[in-house]
């Protein structure tokens, strides 16, 4: 059987993490193809609903990328994201899904970090196996 290829949705903020992902591109840093990026203006614009929907639709993992603390283009959206994700994870614990949702700070100058995060997450989610919701 072919190796399980997890599908990962990444919500990236426009100013830091999306730019970091672009930098990975201009630097030609290779990483697995498993990630599908949804651009948001800010990690603070992430409605927890998006994460639930992604998981319900069959994503095996969700990556949320925001600016480093203090660097948010909109002052403090990343702090809002951090709080929301903390609450969200409590709810996801009930389903055993909390480790499939990652929040990472990735700046516009961290192409390498973006690529490494994706690599690490793909391996991690691969080892967990497919999203259990799909078996329901």
């Amino acid at each position: 059987m072919a190796e399980f290829e997890p599908k990962i949705i990444a919500f990236l903020c426009n100013w830091c993490s999306y730019a970091g992902a672009d930098l990975a591109g201009t630097s030609r840093i290779q990483y697995p193809t498993n990630v599908r990026v949804v651009r948001l203006m800010c990690s603070g614009a992430l409605d927890p609903l998006y994460v639930y929907r992604a998981l319900i639709e069959g994503a095996d993992g969700v990556l949320i990328g925001g600016c480093h603390p203090g660097d948010c283009h909109y002052t403090n959206g990343n702090y809002k994201a951090r709080r929301r994700v903390a609450v969200l994870k409590k709810i996801l614990q009930e389903f055993g899904l909390e480790d499939r949702v990652w929040l990472r700070w990735i700046s516009a100058s961290e192409g390498q970090r973006f690529a490494e995060t994706v690599r690490e997450m793909v391996e991690n989610v691969r080892s967990k196996g497919p999203n259990p919701l799909l078996r329901l």
Partner: peptide
Amino acid sequence: NIREQCSWVHQKEQEK
């Protein structure tokens, strides 16, 4: 975005 976030970062995985 299929260049910075696709073709340039998956240069050896044409199909995927």
